[in-house]
Amino acid sequence: MRLLQALFFPPEQPGGVSSMIPHLQEKFSSARWEMEVFSLPKRIRGKGREDIVFETFDWTQYADRPIVQKYMQTYRDYLWWTRLRLQKPYDLIHAHHPIAALAMKTAFPDTPVLQTIHSSYERELILNGKIEEGSPEHRFLLSIYRELEARTDRLITVSEAFRRYMAPHIEHADRIRIMPNGYDERRFKPVPHENELPQLMTVCRLVPAKGLDVLLQACALLKERDCPYVLHVIGDGPSREELERLAQDLGVYDNTIFYGYTLHPEEFMPFFDIFVLPSRAEAFGSVFAEAALCCLALVGTSVGGVPEQIEHGVNGLLVPPDDPAALADALEQVIGDPAYRYELARTACEKAKSHYSLDRAAIELKRMYLSYEGRGSRSL
């Protein structure tokens, strides 16, 4: 069976998709399977000129909005690159971004296209202050879900919480399949260690949606309570300078290390003690599973798919979003009780191995792919 995994970002970019798709190829390396990975290079900008028509709504009513213009031009660029680079037929295409799915279905109309929706672009834009809820840009992006439902052969998402989020914007939410990402355990190796000071760490893009301002405020409370810690912030983004200034203003800059972007944080993640990410929204939160596989204690917020990974008090701690005091209390609890911290980490690691293994994901995907075998044409 000839498969195409259609990504948006190149596979070396951070995120849940990159945690799984490049590593799947080994699981599909047999005479029965042939898998390729495709994405849009960053250098491709402004190449596409094709007129775009959606089946379920008229996108041109939003055409004067810069964000919509950028989205549609990216769609045209992806379609242009697809037609230029992909000349051979496929039995099935699995897309991991709405633009990828719509472009692939346009280029390969007779080939089954499955779409996994990993996150909410419109929610991120709202939380990051780029658009307002209910704005034309918001309505445009929400309309894309119905277009995906109409055009693709199957919608998949990574958590029950995100299925519920999508439900008002499509016709048949009950048909969405839930399939969390899988992670190759060989990339995440717990390392026995004993740090003199508890080491907190977070890995994310530095944007308001991730709530790192709340984390720094919680760290300031820890400092007031004489609760020892070091915070490691791994990642980059538009909020970095603002967060560094906030750390200085709060008096926690000397306790905080900003690393910037790191390609393989899993290589040194096991040497820390506690993973914390106070997100304001998460479709799933892949980095929690990655931290669990490194045997770190988990502290997160009760948003999106995070509570589907973390059972409060069993394999981690959950706090409300935008609550620095509650976050500080949770961190103080795991900082001050190493035995409890280890028990949470051990339980989280066991759950991640059983629920989010790459082998589990590969088996589920193979079954799903085979159910479409012979349904499409292998011609452009």
Rank of each mutant, 00 (worst) to 15 (best):
A218E: 10
V68W: 01
S302R: 11
M269C: 01
R32S: 00
V68P: 02
Y62L: 07
I44L: 09
N128Q: 08
P136C: 13
I21E: 08
D226T: 08
F57I: 11
I257V: 14
H96G: 02
D322W: 01
A348Q: 05
V287W: 00
I131D: 08
R177S: 04
V299D: 06
V214N: 13
R43D: 13
H23L: 12
T60D: 06
H232T: 02
A31N: 10
D64M: 04
C349M: 13
R154K: 15
A362P: 13
P180K: 08
L293D: 03
P238R: 11
I363Q: 11
D226C: 09
L317Q: 08
R32L: 00
L142M: 15
E196M: 11
T56A: 12
N255S: 14
Q199L: 09
T157E: 02
D184H: 07
S18W: 06
P270V: 09
S30L: 03
S39T: 04
T106K: 13
K189I: 14
L243W: 01
T111S: 06
R49S: 13
E149R: 07
G313H: 05
I126K: 09
A218H: 10
P10R: 10
L365A: 08
L212C: 06
K210N: 12
P228W: 08
G235K: 03
